[in-house]
Design a protein around this nucleic acid. Structure first.
Length: 110
DNA sequence: TTTATGACTTTGC
DNA sequence: AGCAAAGCCATAA
């Protein structure tokens, strides 16, 4: 069975360092399909393996996927356990926490 | 093969 | 500023 788009998403997500986050769009862009941010989320939705999906949020730093963690507070709790401050589904200091594949540093692409 | 879907993103009003 | 609609594209059926 060849590697599917999903598998690559899993690989990237697994590489996200603890205490860091990234976005659907960044992952999609890294995988080559810059318009397929939706696929990333969907890949996680179909995910049967264990990946830190809670470290993936939308481009605003909003926990849009929280509903898929069983409890809507699960995702937030997981992030806070890693030292990430979340308030009202919004990650604080989001831009400083963004991690990008193949980048060793935290990035400040703005 | 065609259609539907979605844990997104961007643009336009 | 805030909401609506379209764009996006890999998978499942």
């Amino acid at each position: 069975m060849e590697k599917s788009f999903y598998d690559r998403v899993y690989e990237v997500v697994r590489r996200i360092p603890r205490g860091r986050v990234t976005t659907y769009g960044i992952i999609a862009n890294y995988l080559g399909s810059k318009g397929s941010a939706r696929m990333v989320g969907w890949a996680l939705n179909s995910n049967h393996i264990e990946v830190p999906a809670h470290r993936v949020v939308n481009r605003n730093g909003l926990l849009t996927g929280k509903a898929h963690f069983g409890d809507i507070y699960m995702m937030e709790n997981l992030l806070e356990q890693e030292g990430i401050e979340v308030k009202n589904n919004q990650i604080q200091n989001f831009e400083e926490l963004i991690w990008i594949p193949d980048e060793v540093n935290p990035i400040l692409l703005y």
